[in-house]
Design a protein around this nucleic acid. Sequence first.
DNA 1: CATACTAAGAGACGGTGCGTATCCAAGTGT
DNA 2: ACACTTGGATACGCACCGTCTCTTAGTATG
Lengths: 222, 222
Amino acid sequence: MRIQVSNSAPPAPTPSPRSSAPAYAEGERRSRRRGATLDDALLRAAWEELSAVGYAKLTMEGVAVRAGTSKAVLYRRWPNRAHLALAAYRHHVVPVADQIPDTGDLREDVMAVLRHMRRNSGEMSPETLHGLLAELRTMPPDLMELLPSVMMTILRRAAERGEVDIEKVTPRIAALPGDLQRHQVLVTGRPGSDDFLAEIVDEIFLPLVTPSPLRSQTTAGG
Amino acid sequence: MRIQVSNSAPPAPTPSPRSSAPAYAEGERRSRRRGATLDDALLRAAWEELSAVGYAKLTMEGVAVRAGTSKAVLYRRWPNRAHLALAAYRHHVVPVADQIPDTGDLREDVMAVLRHMRRNSGEMSPETLHGLLAELRTMPPDLMELLPSVMMTILRRAAERGEVDIEKVTPRIAALPGDLQRHQVLVTGRPGSDDFLAEIVDEIFLPLVTPSPLRSQTTAGG
DNA sequence: CATACTAAGAGACGGTGCGTATCCAAGTGT
DNA sequence: ACACTTGGATACGCACCGTCTCTTAGTATG
């Protein structure tokens, strides 16, 4: 039974036992977590809650309950749910840069990167993505800078194989496939199909970077 | 001083004069608005409020006060602030399709469309855009379908002038400049500069659609 | 002109989540 | 053994949501 204490309890010296019933049963009271262990548990809980209810219904209270702790513990680490959600996302996904594909074929490499992106952004629902962007005002730069650098690596290798005219590759073009994929997710609310990815690569990206067929090995060094 | 009436006032038959002080002074009480006049005033107020405080701080109450009315009047028309904000946006901007540029030069036409887009999306802060997208789950289709059709018109005219190899133009390519511009707004939080627009057009779009210089009018079917 | 009706406008209401503050106690480290 | 940090529970005030009730201005109908 729960006792309703409705008086506001001014700082009286009477040491009344406030916390009479902890969340867990008497017999199996879990040891109190700290530091990295706790951080990890919190981020996992946040991610689970996010996956379960979506960003719109994500509440600090909900995460706290799921993690078996209280809001204060969360607020000591993250200033609001946007930062918490972002941290949970980072904690969950595998960065693209950790697995740069190198299949020996440009098209395959680019497709692999796009599929990896799709997997990662598929992890986060578009609703979450928009919610985050709305509150953060802008995409976290590190998440943006990763992709172009990965693409440049792939393109450089392809250039060495003669698959790419490196002169044609501007930063904007290198970022293009990723940008279009992201645009698709942001606007339609779902990641593109395989056909969509192929369209990006075959219709747009490859034509822009492959050497012109008639002037094959000009490599006009300026 | 504010009097705290804490009793819940059960449905007693006593007709107490509830509304004793209207928002406007006794002498200048405005006539009560209706129909289209009122709709217009509400949408204007919503737009002003949106511009003033941003989407995150947009409240139905705020709009109601600005419009000199009450929340109930808003809720009778729109189910939530997302729909209200979207309606206010539509009410405010000039659709791209109403002014299809026709300068006789493809590059100029495309740039004009992109600038128009930028003006429109500049009207709505990215924060608003994300807020809306987060709540609507997806971009309103009509706003998306407009641009490709406008672009196709421009491209067809350009093809007649020989500026474009119409064979190369897929729907995806026609949508490309707009998509990239939108992506820029969504991700960086601000519309692209003139240089950005030029980059899109000169580096990416035009190379994809202009006839190949060496095989000028081959139109190699098959 | 009298009367019925529709909808504007004011505001109360319960509910929910935010972010903060306070308190107690469980670990930690010295 | 002790002080100190910080985890965990909870209360609090605030803001806004969406609904509802009520009065009354303006319109439509006789």
